[in-house]
Measured scan of single mutants.
Amino acid sequence: SDYEVNVNGIHHRFHNISEELIKFIEEALRRGEDLREIIKKVRELLG
């Protein structure tokens, strides 16, 4: 049904976003950045 496609589409989009965010955060932590600064950047990215 349309509803299922829609829900799956939304889930898929969020899954991709969270994968990208996790990579972004892991790389920043590897560079020794402060978690609070990383979260601030993530918030800015998400608008």
Rank of each mutant, 00 (worst) to 15 (best):
S18F: 03
I17E: 01
V42W: 05
H11F: 14
L46E: 08
V42L: 07
E19A: 09
L35Y: 02
E27Y: 15
L46R: 11
F14V: 00
L21I: 09
R43E: 13
I22N: 01
L21T: 13
D34Q: 10
E44D: 09
R43A: 13
K23W: 11
L21D: 04
E44V: 14
I22S: 02
E33I: 12
N6H: 08
L46A: 09
E19L: 13
H12V: 13
V42S: 02
L29P: 00
G32M: 07
S1R: 15
D34Y: 12
G32R: 04
F24H: 07
L45Q: 10
L29G: 03
N8F: 00
E19R: 10
N16L: 05
I22M: 06
D2F: 06
K23E: 12
I25P: 00
S1K: 14
K41H: 10
E37W: 15
E44S: 11
I38G: 00
F24K: 06
D2K: 01
L21A: 10
L46P: 05
S18P: 07
L21V: 12
N6W: 05
G47V: 10
H15C: 04
N16P: 01
G32I: 02
F24I: 08
I38A: 03
E26Q: 14
N8H: 07
K40Y: 15
I39M: 05
Y3T: 01
Y3I: 03
I39S: 03
S1H: 14
E4G: 02
A28K: 09
G9H: 02
E27W: 15
E19I: 10
D34L: 10
S18G: 07
G32E: 10
R31H: 11
R31L: 11
F24R: 05
E19Y: 14
H11W: 14
E33W: 15
D34N: 07
I25N: 00
R36S: 11
L29Y: 06
G9W: 00
E44L: 13
E44Q: 13
R43P: 04
V5S: 01
S1Y: 13
I22Q: 04
V7R: 04
R13D: 10
D2R: 01
D34V: 07
I25A: 02
R30T: 09
V42D: 00
H15I: 09
I39K: 03
Y3S: 01
Y3N: 01
L46F: 08
K40G: 08
V7M: 07
K23P: 04
E20M: 08
R30M: 13
E44C: 12
K40I: 13
L29T: 04
I39E: 04
H11K: 14
R30F: 14
N16D: 07
R13L: 15
N6E: 12
K40N: 12
I39L: 09
E37Y: 15
N8L: 03
E4W: 03
E37N: 11
N16C: 04
L35I: 12
E44A: 12
R43W: 11
Y3F: 10
I22L: 04
R43Y: 15
L45S: 07
R31G: 06
K41W: 15
N16H: 06
H15D: 11
R30N: 08
I10T: 12
I10M: 14
A28D: 06
G9L: 02
I38D: 00
I17A: 07
H12D: 03
N8E: 06
I39A: 05
I39N: 02
F24S: 05
K41F: 15
I25M: 03
V42Q: 01
H11L: 15
F14R: 00
R43C: 03
S18H: 05
S1F: 14
E20L: 08
R31V: 08
L29N: 03
R31D: 06
Y3L: 05
F14T: 00
R36Y: 12
I22V: 07
R36K: 10
N16E: 03
I25Y: 01
E27Q: 12
G9S: 03
E33Y: 14
N6I: 15
L21W: 05
L46Q: 14
K41E: 06
